[in-house]
Design a protein around this nucleic acid. Structure first.
Length: 941
RNA sequence: GCAGGGAUGCCUGAGCGGUCAAAAGGGCUAGGCUUAGGACCUAGUGGCUUAGUGCCUUCAAGGGUUCAAAUCCCUUUCCCUGCACCA
């Protein structure tokens, strides 16, 4: 009976949209709306999580079109950066795992297996990887019915795009936002490469971090013993140094000073940008027994045996603070060295006495250094408390009274400034040592002359903040996050030496990093389709300056670039028409990077009138309660959606399953339920015809239907305007359908003309959500137009009275049922309904205006007073239930009318004779129970 | 650790000072339809009580503000997300 065939319908409309170039947007006299969603990265198939973001984007685009805007929604593909490049390299190397993985990926799209082999073979060229997946994604997007203007498509590898990015970097340079400096990165000494999370063994589990240690220089012989620490504020409490007698140390020239450090750390420091020249090898035991000085307090410190000292960790020289470091205390105690030193307490923490480390160690009963777990626990416990609640009690004007949190920062800077300390980087991770996939150890290496974008620059930051302030962020809760990010965002490397990308214009062998090249590309969409016969070298600085910043004249630009003046004018007109970007919609994962850079870049480069207007965000998507991940094998590729479900089903489910700010849990079962609803919509609407503009409303039920649909339309619109997609679906799809169902239940002979009219509206408001189905039904109804040409239905003033009148009927039926249940009267012979008299309604309204002494106030009114005892009883009832009675009440006449017009419906429900009376016109005692909106009822057996 | 968000009935999940025993869906129960099943329709779904009522207990835990709190404030516990060179 149900012949809804979504695949067929969807294909039909998609072909038609493409043929008729429906979504190709050009400048016009209409008001424009420029929507963008970040271009996808082309290193593999997209999954339904991506689909969520793009689907919401399409719903917004279609809604705006229905509201009469000239909407541009373009799309491009991202291929710069490391992943595409790395895939290619791995395949070239013959990495079996990767090859298999990509064969699997390709098989998602290709039916022919042999073809997969061939295609993966071609992936040795990174551009082929990008090209293949760009095409695949393009097909996916098309099959989901996205209303994208594909003429403006490009990839970040395109020459003209790279010219555009190059220009952007010239602007940064001009403004002084580009800087060079040292920068520590994770590095594998085995394969001699910088490593990212992807390159780290178990990178998803082991989070590697680079921590900055303060290496403090203790005078020793003609140079220094250098010991590094994360707690430089403890310099005031040092009692001794530890050296491992079995370790090899070196005397080395480091940046012109003589340092005594472990041999291994000398190698490490060299990679961290220090100039190291080893002069002599020394055994640890040769150092032990000597003395050194505390560089600040000038106290003499003994150098003691510390067999626990790891030459690989930091500098192989450890300074000891037994008052506050459990490790140090235990080390000294175990070896009986405690009497060689004088413990110094420097931090005061509530809950601890003079020697917190000792207390903590004793509390946990730690006896030896071998009890590593317990020692770790003692250390974190103590550190946590000292960090948050501890105060420095050393007698030093710069530090006394500071919290540990403040002192830590200050001590590090202070020591470095005096030349008494240096920065040393260490790789740390909570779980294990960090290894590269190749097996080598990951260390911290300093990149010299790294290029940065200085987002920390005050003037730039202020502009970005202003831009943020002027913007609309939806859901609003994310604004706070942006603000926080803007506070701490600082220098960020913007160039690197591996991967694919635009050549960095100011230095050989560097390319522009792939997040930095994707911040203002929305501007590029506006003109891409007009650059066809222009050579990349014609896209000069002058060209971009003229088009994007309105500098120079068309004539001069034409002369200097050789591009015809006419074409320059076209390009410029197009940019001026579409810019700024009205809405950027994306997933929340981009908030702290891409979106923040997007704002910063616009603030830096464009004039205020071209700053973006709105950012909308959606949360991620999980599946059946668990995160989708490659390792779990539970990823649903976007391509499978139209094979297994349908575009409209996916769209409707995605939008209805969660609000944008909530994680969406993809549940197979619920998706099926949505399928039922769409089939129902198809079935019901298939029976209808094209509606007339002003159908006759025969009775109250008809009026109610019109009113209800109007309300749903209004709510749906409001919800979309506020980006509350879930609420939109609830109103546009679910509520309208249940209202129609209710109407058919209540009305003996449904008014076909009215239903035709109303379902027209329903299709319109559902079009942004499920465009294929709506277009198809619209056509079936016999309309000559398509919905794409139609506009959002007009909203009339709400007719709440009609809705209220129906509520009274519903109230009566539930009440009757309730009474039936209690009394056990299954088949009532007769049911009498009494509506409340007008004086009770008056009292009700009066009560709402009265603040206190309700009874007294009411009894002053003549109309009420004359009902004596009954009036007092009612007034008491009002007083008691002041806050939980309906706010507005109908007149008795209206209630009578409502009940009378639904009389047949009620009779049918209860298979009983119904009579409707006014309470004041009967002597029946039960009639006194009638209140406004809740008529009295008498059921007879 | 820092920052942001969260904890609601059997489940998912809305509500974010009074109309809240709390939307919507699912599940479950009963009835209708049907040869039966499914689909569909109708009703019920914290407890006790009742001619449509009233009361009690509930929105992570504890405390507070208020005539009134799931909703506001504080504390605690647990969960999710991000923390940079990775797109």
């Amino acid at each position: 009976m149900n012949n809804y065939n979504p695949n067929k319908i969807e294909k039909k409309w998609q072909e038609r949209w493409e043929k008729e170039k429906t979504y190709e947007a050009n400048p016009s006299n209409e008001e424009k709306f420029f929507l963008t969603v970040p271009y996808p990265y082309t290193s593999g198939p997209l999954h339904i999580g991506h689909g969520r973001t793009y689907t919401l984007g399409d719903i917004f685009a279609r809604f705006k079109r229905m509201q009469g805007y000239n909407v541009l929604w373009p799309m491009a593909f991202h291929m710069t950066g490391t992943p595409v490049h790395a895939i290619s390299q791995q395949i070239k190397k013959g990495n079996k795992e990767k090859i298999e993985l990509f064969k699997d990926y390709v098989k998602i799209y290709e039916e022919n297996q042999e073809k997969a082999e061939e295609i993966v073979e071609s992936f040795k060229d990174p551009y082929k990887v990008a090209e293949y997946f760009a095409n695949a994604i393009h097909k996916d997007f098309r099959s989901l019915g996205y209303s994208i203007d594909w003429r403006r498509q490009f990839t970040t590898g395109d020459e003209d795009y790279q010219k555009f990015v190059e220009w952007q970097f010239h602007k940064y340079k001009e403004k002084g936002y580009l800087e060079q400096g040292n920068h520590p990165i994770l590095y594998c000494t085995e394969c001699e490469n910088a490593v990212g999370e992807d390159d780290i063994k178990d990178g998803d589990r082991i989070k590697a971090e680079i921590e900055t240690f303060t290496g403090i220089k203790y005078p020793y012989k003609e140079g220094y013993l250098v010991a590094s620490t994360l707690r430089p504020e403890t310099i005031f409490g040092v009692t001794n140094l530890f050296i491992n007698p079995k370790t090899n140390y070196v005397k080395a020239d480091v940046n012109g000073e003589t340092w005594y450090i472990s041999k291994k750390s000398a190698e490490k420091l060299e990679r961290q940008g220090k100039k190291v020249k080893i002069q002599k090898k020394i055994k640890g035991k040769e150092i032990i027994g000597n003395k050194t000085l505390n560089p600040i307090t000038k106290e003499e410190l003994p150098i003691i045996t510390g067999e626990f000292v790891d030459p690989d960790n930091a500098t192989g020289v450890v300074y000891s603070v037994p008052a506050h470091a459990p490790y140090d205390y235990v080390a000294l105690k175990e070896k009986g060295d405690l009497d060689k030193v004088k413990i110094k307490s420097i931090i005061e923490t509530p809950g601890y006495g003079e020697h917190p480390a000792k207390e903590e160690v004793e509390k946990l009963g730690i006896k030896t250094q071998a009890e590593k777990e317990k020692l770790k626990q003692a250390t974190t416990e103590l550190y946590k408390k000292e960090f948050h609640k501890g105060k420095m009690k050393v007698k030093h004007e710069d530090f006394q009274g500071l919290t540990v949190e403040q002192a830590k920062e200050k001590a590090s800077k202070w020591l470095k400034k005096q030349g008494k300390a240096t920065e040393i980087y260490e790789v740390t991770s909570k779980t294990d040592q960090v290894h590269c996939r190749c097996g080598g150890k990951v260390t911290a290496v300093v990149m010299e002359n790294q290029w940065f974008l200085n987002y920390g620059k005050e003037e730039w930051k202020q502009k970005a903040k202003r831009c943020l302030e002027s913007m609309n962020i939806k859901p609003e809760i994310y604004r706070e996050q942006f603000k926080n990010i803007f506070e701490w965002i600082d220098k960020r490397p913007c160039a690197r030496k591996r991967g694919i990308g635009t050549k960095f214009p100011f230095q050989e062998n560097w390319i522009i990093e792939s997040l930095s090249d994707s911040t203002i590309y929305m501007a590029f969409y506006t003109i891409k389709n007009h650059l066809k016969n222009i050579e990349p070298n014609q896209l000069t600085q002058e060209f971009w300056d003229h088009i994007l910043l309105d500098k120079g004249t068309p004539k001069k630009t034409s002369q200097s670039t050789g591009i015809p003046e006419e074409q320059i004018n076209t390009v410029k007109k197009e940019f001026n028409y579409w810019y700024p970007n009205d809405q950027r919609h994306t997933a929340i994962a981009h908030l702290s990077n891409h979106l923040s850079f997007f704002i910063f870049a616009h603030a830096a480069i464009f004039t205020e009138k071209n700053w973006p207007k709105t950012i909308t965000l959606n949360e991620l998507l999980i599946r059946e309660g668990t995160k989708m991940s490659k390792s779990k094998g539970n990823v649903i590729p976007l391509t499978n959606i139209t094979k297994k479900y349908s575009a409209d089903l996916f769209r409707a489910y995605i939008a209805s399953a969660a609000d944008m700010e909530s994680v969406l849990d993809w549940r197979e079962e619920e998706a099926k339920n949505m399928d039922k609803k769409l089939r129902k919509l198809h079935e019901e609407t298939s029976k209808t015809k094209k509606g007339t503009t002003k159908p006759k409303e025969e009775d109250l039920i008809d009026q109610w239907l019109s009113a209800k649909i109007n309300t749903h339309t209004k709510n749906a619109q409001k919800a979309l305007e506020e980006y509350k997609v879930r609420e939109y679906v609830q109103n546009a799809l679910l509520n309208t359908q249940s209202t129609l169902k209710e109407y058919k239940n209540k009305k003996e002979k449904p008014n076909k003309e009215l239903i035709n009219h109303v379902t027209d509206k329903v299709l319109k408001i559902n079009y942004p959500l499920i465009p294929h189905l709506c277009e198809e039904l619209w056509e079936q109804k016999g309309h000559q137009t398509t919905l794409t040409e139609e506009t959002w239905p007009q909203i009339h003033k709400e007719d709440l009275e009609k809705e209220k009148m129906m509520e009274v009927v519903d109230q009566v039926t539930t009440d009757i049922r309730q009474i039936q249940k209690i009394t056990g009267i299954k088949k009532p012979r007769k049911i009498e309904i009494y509506t409340a008299p007008e004086w009770k309604r008056k009292a009700h309204r009066l009560m709402q205006k009265t603040k206190e002494n309700i009874i007294g106030q009411l009894m002053k009114d003549e109309d009420i007073k004359k009902h004596g005892k009954e009036a007092v009883t009612y007034a008491k009832h009002l007083q008691k239930n002041k806050y939980n009675l309906p706010k507005e009440v109908l007149t008795q006449k209206q209630e009578q009318q409502a009940l009378k017009s639904l009389k047949q419906y009620i009779e049918k429900q209860f298979k009983s004779q119904i009579s409707i009376k006014k309470a004041q016109e009967t002597k029946e005692p039960k009639a006194q129970k009638a209140t406004p909106m809740k008529p009295a009822i008498k059921i007879e057996k």
